[in-house]
Nucleic acid binder design. Structure first.
Lengths: 203, 203
DNA sequence: ACATCAATATGGACACTGTCAATATAATGA
DNA sequence: TCATTATATTGACAGTGTCCATATTGATGT
C-alpha cells in the first residue's frame, strides 16, 4: 500500500527512507560538532546501517553536503519569507528586517550558516541548489528595487554592498573575529548601528 | 660555525632548517590546491623527510596552520603598511586604499585569505597570532580615528561596519557567490562603487 | 504467479590521513 | 669526553572516503 515503509517492514534490510534519515543524522552531527564531525561513516553509524550504505543515495561526500546546503538555503528562504511577509515597511525597516533575519539565522544555526560559505564542500553549480540560492538573494533585491531611491548607484552595486556587509558581519560574529577594544561589540544595539551605516550609504 | 646548516652538512639526517622548509612547502601546496591539500604527510613528502618529522616542529596540524596564519597576517600587515604609507590622503582616499589593498591581497592569494577566515583550523588565541591580527585591524581603526568625522556613530561601530563589508565582499568574490544578474560584477568600477556605499554611510 | 531486473544494503579492501611510541642519529654544552 | 637534548626515522593504530563483489529486496512485465 505505502510506497515507503518506515517501520512496518519485518525485515529491515532495506531501510525504507534512508536518504532522509541520513540527512537528519547529518544535521544532528553538524549542529552539535561542526562540519568536520559530519562524516559518512559516522552518519551511517548513527542511523545504524553499513558504512557504505549512504553511497546509494549520495555519490560522494560532496553530494551529501550539496543536499545539506540545499536544505539550509530552503530553510533560510522560508524564514525570510515569513519574516518579511507584512510588507508595509519602508526601505529602512525592510533592510533591518532582512539583516536581522540573516543574522539571527546565523547565530541560531552557526554551523549551518558556516557550511553555506564553504563552497569547496559542495557543488554550487547544482541546478536545484542554484535556484534556491537565487531565491534567498532575490528577497534582498526585491526590497531594494521596490523602494525606488535616488539612483546614485545601480541596483546591483547596492545589493552587493548590502549583502557583503551582512554576510561579512555574520561571518565575523561566527568566527569570533570581532576583536573587542574597549567595549562589548555583540549587543543588538551594535548590530542596528552597523546596519544603519550601510543604509545611510544606500539612501 | 653556522648554527644553521642548510646544505653544507654531509649527512642529511638533520635537515638544518626543517621548520622553514615545511612552511614553505605548505604554502606551495596551499596556493596551488587549497587548504585540503595541505597535509602533514604530503608536506613531509615534498620536503623529503619522514612523515612524522614535522611533529618535532609543530605539535599537531592545528599548530602548523597557526604558523601559516601568522605568516599570512604578517604579510598582509606589511602590505597594508607600504600601501598606506603616503599618508596625505583624506578619509575617502584612505578607506579606498585600505579596501583595495585587502581585496587585491585576497584575489592574489585566495587560499591564503580563505585560511584566515577558517578559525577552526588554527589557534586564534595564540598570543603572537593575536598581536599580528590586531596589527591588521589597527591599520583600519587608525584611518577612522585620525580623520575626525561628525560622530553620528561610535568608532567601534564604524570599524566593524567597514571591516564587515570589505571582508564580506572579498569572501563573496572568492566564493564565487556573487550571482550575476544582467551584467558583470567583478570589475574594478564595481568595487569602487561598493566601497563608496559604506563610505557614504560613514561620513 | 513467476521470472527478471533495478534498487538498495552488506562486508571487505585500499590508500590516505593525523597522531603516537620506540628507536636512531646528531648537535650541544658542562 | 660524555651525558643530555634536539631532531629524525620507522612502525603502528584508528579513522576516513571510495570502490568492489556480493546479498537481499521491491518492482515490473508477461
Amino acid at each position: 500500500m505505502d510506497t515507503v515503509n518506515i517501520m512496518s517492514s519485518e525485515s529491515n534490510y532495506h531501510h525504507g527512507s534512508l536518504r532522509a534519515a541520513l540527512i537528519k543524522a547529518a544535521f544532528t552531527l553538524l549542529d552539535k560538532d561542526g562540519i568536520d564531525a559530519v562524516t559518512i561513516r559516522q552518519i551511517a553509524r548513527v542511523v545504524g546501517v553499513a558504512h557504505s550504505a549512504p553511497a546509494n543515495h549520495f555519490k560522494n561526500k560532496r553530494e551529501l553536503f550539496t543536499a545539506l546546503a540545499l536544505e539550509i538555503f530552503k530553510q533560510l528562504s522560508k524564514t525570510l519569507k515569513s519574516e518579511l511577509e507584512p510588507n508595509d515597511k519602508n526601505l529602512r525597516e525592510s533592510i533591518h528586517a532582512f539583516s536581522k533575519t540573516i543574522l539571527d539565522f546565523g547565530l541560531k544555526h552557526p554551523n549551518r550558516y558556516t557550511l553555506l560559505s564553504r563552497r569547496d564542500c559542495f557543488n554550487s553549480s547544482d541546478e536545484e541548489l542554484y535556484k534556491s540560492m537565487e531565491e534567498v538573494y532575490q528577497h534582498m533585491t526585491r526590497i531594494l528595487s521596490t523602494h525606488s531611491n535616488e539612483d546614485n548607484l545601480d541596483a546591483q552595486s547596492q545589493a552587493i554592498a548590502l549583502w557583503s556587509m551582512i554576510h561579512g558581519y555574520v561571518m565575523l560574529r561566527l568566527e569570533g573575529a570581532l576583536i573587542s577594544g574597549s567595549d562589548e561589540l555583540t549587543g543588538e544595539d551594535r548590530q542596528i548601528a552597523i546596519v544603519d551605516v550601510i543604509i545611510n550609504g544606500l539612501i
